[in-house]
Simulated assay, not measured.
Amino acid sequence: MNATYTCNGLSYPATIRLEGKGLFIELHRADGAGTVLWQYASIRPSERASFFGYNDYPPQTLEVLDAVLTSQLHEALRNPANRFRASRFGPLAKLLAIVLVLFSLVYFLVVPWVSGLLASRFPYSYEKQLGEQVYRSMVQPSDIDKPATAAANRFFQALQFDSEHPVRITVVKGDVVNAFALPGGHIIVYQKLLRGLDSYDEFAALLAHEFVHVRNRHTLRSVFRQFGGTIFLSLLVGDAGAVSAVLLNNVNELKNLSYSRRLETEADMEGLQLLRQRGISCRGFVQLFRFLQKESGAMQPSEWLSSHPDLSKRIGSIQRSGTCTEGNKDEQLHSLFLQLKTAE
């Protein structure tokens, strides 16, 4: 191990290696290994030579413990094209390129379709049970801000989003700017994110976005895509319980689960439609994304280098949307938001 990787306040020992595609970070966790890829174009050196940041959300940092690797990484950031030269294409390389293209087509076209199909056929009773198991393993009672949780649920109920199944908001303590949905109807919001919101329409936009993830089963679909091989084989032999085991063994990944660009855009646009139906201003989305943009750093990675759409492009899409209206002030939501901000 030659580095320490930190994301969302959690630190892991890691082994890094420099390759042509980027910096590979192999994490060594108690629940198993995992690998993170940092694109060179998005790595941000700091004032301390051995510390590096990454221009993506959620914020990530890396401390390199090996002086030689630190020097090599700085050299790669200065001129990665000269450090890693592509080899000439011979017949074998062309064949490999064709295989990679076919594999990419399968991964980006077939896998999402199969993931969506499996998620749509997965019984809601299993999904709810699965979500409860993951929630209990992830959120301890002492982590919950009970007054804020009660206020957040009152706010959500006042939004009157039409939902086939119950949705529950939980506000958790922690110096992390994050919110995410779990299978079965749980939405987790961190205190620090709430503190950064200035108006009720920002919180409404956040909940609308996460609610669409819940309603459209995006979390389940993304989980099936990320752990598709194991889950598919489990369902094939009728072992639905193995799905729970897969998720419980990878519970930390759910905090930073990356949705596809298509699912994130779907959550933005359908969430915006929900706000329009409720007469809430679209500026909530714009202000929310600007806050997240500020938290993740001034520079944003290219859309194609990220598993999420670029925040600047998401802001532009919201502003260009034909459903974007200013809306009138909702006194009920304004009052409930003030209760949430002052909950103790």
Rank of each mutant, 00 (worst) to 15 (best):
L340V: 07
N82F: 06
L92V: 15
T265Q: 15
P58I: 04
C324M: 03
G116D: 07
D66A: 04
S104V: 03
E202N: 09
V106W: 11
L247S: 06
Q133L: 13
R48G: 03
G229R: 15
A179V: 04
Y5H: 07
I188T: 05
P166D: 08
A151Y: 03
V177D: 01
L292F: 12
K173V: 10
D198V: 02
S137K: 15
E331S: 05
A240F: 13
N79Y: 00
R261F: 10
Q319V: 12
Q319W: 06
F122Q: 03
V167W: 08
L274K: 08
Q60I: 07
S87R: 15
E19W: 04
H334A: 14
I318L: 08
S11A: 11
N328D: 09
T149C: 01
D201H: 08
T61N: 11
L77A: 02
P45R: 00
V111R: 06
Q273G: 07
Y5M: 04
L100Y: 12
S260G: 09
V99E: 01
Q273Y: 08
D145Q: 05
A245K: 15
W113A: 09
L100E: 02
Y135G: 03
F156P: 05
D56C: 14
R262C: 00
Y57A: 03
R290M: 08
S199N: 12
Y12W: 14
Q191P: 00
L23F: 14
L118W: 14
V101D: 02
L109W: 14
G184A: 01
F337I: 05
E326Y: 07
G184F: 02
L73T: 00
S163D: 01
T325Q: 08
A119N: 05
I144E: 04
T35L: 13
D31K: 15
Q287T: 11
I280K: 10
A298E: 09
A81V: 02
A150N: 11
